[in-house]
Simulated assay, not measured.
Amino acid sequence: MIFACPIDGTELNDSLVCEKGHTFRIIDSEIYDFLLKDMKSSELLEKIAPIYERIWAPLGMILTAHMSYSKLLKSIANFINGNIVIDVGTGTGKIFDFINCDKCLGVDISLKFLKYLKKKRSKVIAIRSDASNLPIKSNIADGVSSTLVLHMLPNPSFAIKEISRVLKPNGKCSIVVLANTNSIMGRVLAKWWRINLRHYDYYANLLLSNSLKIIERRDLGPWILINCVKTS
């Protein structure tokens, strides 16, 4: 069992009941639901879910970073390949078309996106959960990715702490965030999404304080790709 109770951290049985009696469910026999409170993803993202991976994300990446969306995902996949790989904020799970993993876990709060994921990528374990409270055991993942997500969170520090927790020592993580890079496009996107545009140093300090050593930074227009290795 790869799951742990997101409330108390104890192990879950096959019926998704933890040692202290907290009970979770499986939706439509295919989506593990661990969401502890009513959380909604962006209304805009919910509306564009059917075209997100075919049109929205590829077009957006070309226009803002002058880079193919698939090329970006392939680059991340090549870095985090492993036995157990988790994608936090997975959306439709497009990245799993490129990742080599035996157990592939896609985490998102959007039930709509997770249903698309299971329709297109049935081998991926679909998990409905908050990125800041992953229902996954500690120190089990060989790789973790979070692409175009962390900057959308009110407090990314909780999610980064969770990413470090579930990673094995020497496990790898790759994140892509919208950051303050003195990019006009970055400021436009931040205003559009109504998010706080944080500096690279903000994310770098959070990663380092959670035992995630930065080994690569790549600037992609308003986006920054950061590759890390867990040191302990």
Rank of each mutant, 00 (worst) to 15 (best):
S183L: 09
A65M: 06
I160K: 05
P156N: 14
S75P: 03
T64S: 13
L73F: 05
L134V: 12
P58L: 15
L117G: 08
C104Y: 07
S164Y: 03
L117N: 06
H66N: 11
A179W: 00
P169N: 15
L111V: 02
Y116N: 04
F113K: 01
I109V: 08
M61L: 13
S110Q: 03
D108M: 11
I140K: 11
I84T: 10
D102Y: 06
F113Q: 03
I140E: 10
G171A: 01
T90C: 13
S68V: 04
P156D: 15
R128Q: 01
S157C: 15
Y69H: 04
G93Q: 02
L72N: 00
S132I: 09
R121D: 02
D87S: 03
F79D: 05
V176C: 12
I84L: 08
T90E: 04
S122H: 11
D142I: 14
K168M: 13
I76F: 04
E53Y: 12
R54C: 02
L105H: 00
V85G: 09
I99S: 04
S75R: 01
Y69V: 00
I99W: 13
K172D: 08
A159R: 01
L73C: 03
E162M: 15
M185R: 13
L114Y: 04
L150S: 13
K172V: 12
H66T: 12
L117A: 08
E53H: 09
F79N: 03
K172Y: 12
L134E: 10
I55S: 13
L72Y: 03
M67H: 06
S110D: 04
A57Y: 11
I184F: 13
L72P: 01
I127D: 02
V124Y: 02
K74D: 04
T64L: 07
L72G: 05
A159Y: 06
V85T: 11
V144E: 07
V85S: 05
I99G: 09
R128F: 00
I99E: 06
N81F: 06
F158Y: 15
K119C: 09
I95F: 04
M185L: 15
S157D: 15
V124S: 13
K74P: 00
K71H: 09
E162C: 14
A131I: 01
K119M: 12
L72Q: 00
K120V: 02
N182R: 10
G91E: 05
D102C: 06
T90L: 05
L111P: 02
A57V: 00
L148R: 04
D108T: 08
F98N: 03
I84R: 01
S122W: 01
G106T: 05
E53G: 14
S132D: 02
A126V: 03
